[in-house]
Amino acid sequence: MDKKIFIEPLFRNNPVTVLVLGICSALAVTVKLEPAIVMALSVTIVTGFSGFIVSLLRNTIPNRIRIIVQLVVVAMLVILVDQVLKAFAYEVSKQLSVFVGLIITNCIIMGRIEAFALGNKPLPSLVDGLANGLGYGIILIIIAFFREFFGSGTIYGIQIIPTEWYIKNGGFYENNGLFILPPMALIIVGLVIWVQRSIQKDLQEK
């Protein structure tokens, strides 16, 4: 199997910063690292297995109703993920609220099914799905890292900035509340794209 299928989506063809897919949830769940990581894992699992299942079915699905069939496959996987999260990670699943359900309409999944799984064998489709999920996860973790660090002074819930630095304890430091608010996520993605395109000049738009 071609190694490219796995490597490309991680950076060179990243679903979020290059293909502009799956932005909605990338932004909404990144206030803290923990929900971001859980979300990244859930999306990876769903993209991987939906690609695998659709690819198994690809020769039997009539073309006209393929969107509905794909949605049903994806919705089934998302229900499984949602029930597992509710059972084993209830707190996180409350934080993610509707965004677990919104994995169904995450464009990465439909995009990869349409672009890859419908024309390829099950195993490469599985790998392609997993790799795209991981590419999405990398961006999610970068955004969440900066937002949690500057917005709350913690990383994965562990206090990084010494508490005696804070103004309320007689220090000089204050958390930047802007990073917790939604718009900052967009600006961070913009900056990530800036960095990536400065390195890979061929991606720049005219």
Binding site: L186, I187, I193, Q204, E205
Partner: peptide
């Protein structure tokens, strides 16, 4: 617009600024 920011990058930043305005 700086070349690496053209198109997608600047759009994200504009949407972020619009979001701050909407807040």
């Amino acid at each position: 617009v700086p070349a690496p920011l053209r198109g997608l990058g600047i759009t994200f930043i504009v949407v972020g600024l619009m979001g701050i305005a909407f807040m």
